[in-house]
Design a protein around this nucleic acid. Structure first.
Lengths: 351, 351
DNA sequence: TTGTATGCGTTATCAA
DNA sequence: TTGATAACGCATACAA
């Protein structure tokens, strides 16, 4: 017997059960509203046919999808993956589905993904950081799709955010480094022009320098893309400068791990010769030798709280409001006082 | 002036441009079929209104979505994330969009996700490994959704796969270990009952033992879930047994990194006291000290080839066929001959 | 408790 | 080259 190759629809189920499509629909969505014998007949037909509702049709008819989109820079960064895991788990518990998209840190792709998720009917969106063109927020508004920003906390902005203060977090770390006596500092950072987390962290270091009476201009900085190897290359570059920095901040743990590895290869002792700090406190930070000093970021909590905020908005019409989550310094083994050296008179440096 | 809060539709665009909805649709999908002046008028209206087509409606009317679903065990494993990155890039180049879902290694969730992606209209699916209930393949067939399996290569099975031979890959590693003189072997593995990659790798080790004249029963094995900490715990367990194994295979690099770390904490020298091997050859394997000996898996290539195969099927009706990709041993620093010890007479072991 | 009828936003067929 | 109009599969207001 040849397979009748056509996808079963509500209509097919209705026919097999001898009821109307409306009854089948009710059976699936509001089982209590239908008499038990009828329901059983319908459910049997559903099982028999292997019926599965068509999402598009459902979305169009009901004008909602119970779907929330999340757009992150890259899935290759475990820290985002973790946060999304928590986000998804929480959503799942409330009957929502998560749709992910990634941008490879490119703003044009992000815009494309936002449009795609909106077209797919996402009821709301989760975005990383605030840095994007105003037209995008405009677009989201005309489409009636609420968006929540995470990985940042900027209560002054109109767009609500659930996250942490990147400036303050990095400033705490910089304070600790400076307190140990470091004066020649460097930073390996992502591009700060399109990434507000990166620029915030840079600002944090500058603030710390200023309040310690040091000149922010003296911070050496290398900008690079994301990756272990990129961190390694950037570190090597920094080590060629004279005078060498005694402490190298890294914008995230992955860059720091690369730096650490290159230091090892170059025979530079960490932290005896140079201190290295990370940011994110991913698992990676615990397994390096020496273990990485880093800034702990509440990634799971951000995911969870973001989910709760969005569900609250969609289900109970609770307006979004910004929520600040805390960070903390995790002192491990890559930060120590600077090596004891004769400090050259400042004026001689240019000679 | 209050915002007219309603999402623009084809109809709105048509009205503003003074044409029919059919013309607007053509403008968007087959621009060449419409006269230039008309087209320009329509495009202006599209821009003006910020029109964005409704995906659900489009899918329903055209009966395809240009969307391919991918279901992986977890996004927290960078190796899957990488493969998907390549998969997505390739799809993107051919006009397809990827939809991801993850299962936390749970079969019930996988089934749910498969149904969800099918309901969302995925034109095809990418799945990891072959181990799932036959009803699921049945379901996919009645729904007319083709599925490709990756991370495995089993040409004997009906379901086509693009991947590598897990048995052979691990067997190569086991051969190398045994050749060095190791006799007391152990394995830290994921659950082999629901994970065909894990069971394949186990089989590989057993095969190597047999062909070396060793008893496969002597392989000590600890089953655990995925994670660095889990690997550490499993390793500690193994080290309590007497006689201690001299080589510990790990089902993946993440478990191996945990094992390595626990060895370090326990003061056990790797590889002098015990050898440890991984599987996947993720970046992680290069940054540990000592660097991890592992099996290189062609993750990016699997992603790329899988995308090409599925696009070939959907666009050009080329039937799916299984493709085998190669693996290779990556010898780094965690594998060495066993420590020199007096081998106890076999018969005495039980005393 | 169940059925009828309409609309959701788009594509595609057929005429014009 | 363009316009009517009939699907597409489902939810829901209203009627029975």
């Amino acid at each position: 017997m040849p397979q009748r190759h056509s996808i079963p629809t509500l209509h097919d189920v209705a026919q097999m059960a001898g009821v109307s499509t409306a009854t089948v629909s009710r059976c699936l969505n509001f089982p209590t509203q239908v008499a038990k014998p009828t329901r059983e007949r319908v459910m049997a037909a559903v099982a028999e046919l292997g019926y599965s509702p068509n999402f598009g049709a459902k979305a169009m008819a009901s004008r909602r999808t119970n779907t929330i989109g999340a757009i992150i820079p890259t899935m290759e960064n475990a820290i985002f993956a973790r946060a999304l895991q928590a986000f998804q788990e929480e959503l799942r518990g409330h009957g929502y589905t998560m749709l992910v998209a990634s941008t490879s840190y490119r703003q044009d792709i992000e815009e494309e993904q936002i449009r795609s998720l909106v077209a797919r009917g996402a009821d709301a969106l989760l975005l990383i950081g605030h840095a994007r063109a105003p037209e995008i927020y405009q677009f989201l508004e005309t489409q009636g799709v609420p968006a929540l920003v995470t990985w940042a906390y900027e209560p002054a902005l109109k767009q609500p955010s659930v996250g942490f203060d990147n400036v303050a977090a990095m400033q705490k770390m910089a304070d600790a480094v400076i307190d140990l006596g470091h004066k020649r500092l460097a930073l390996i950072s992502a591009d700060t022009s399109t990434n507000d987390r990166a620029s915030g962290r840079l600002t944090g270091i500058r603030n710390a320098l200023k309040s310690a009476g040091l000149d922010p201009k003296d911070l050496q900085m290398v900008t690079t893309t994301y990756g272990i190897e990129q961190g390694a290359v950037a570190f090597a570059t920094l080590m060629q400068s004279t005078p060498r920095p005694t402490a190298v901040f890294c914008g995230n743990d992955v860059l720091a791990v690369g730096a650490l590895r290159r230091a090892h290869e170059m025979g530079i002792k960490v932290p005896a010769d140079v201190s290295i700090t990370g940011f994110d406190d991913m698992q990676l930070a615990q397994i390096t030798i020496p273990a990485l000093t880093s800034v702990h970021v509440p990634h799971r909590e951000m995911g969870r709280q973001s989910a709760l905020a969005l569900v609250g908005l969609l289900k109970d019409d609770k307006p979004l409001k910004s929520i600040e989550l805390g960070t903390s310094l995790v002192m491990r083994d890559t930060l120590a006082p600077p090596p004891h050296t004769l400090e050259p008179a400042t004026g001689l440096r240019a000679i």
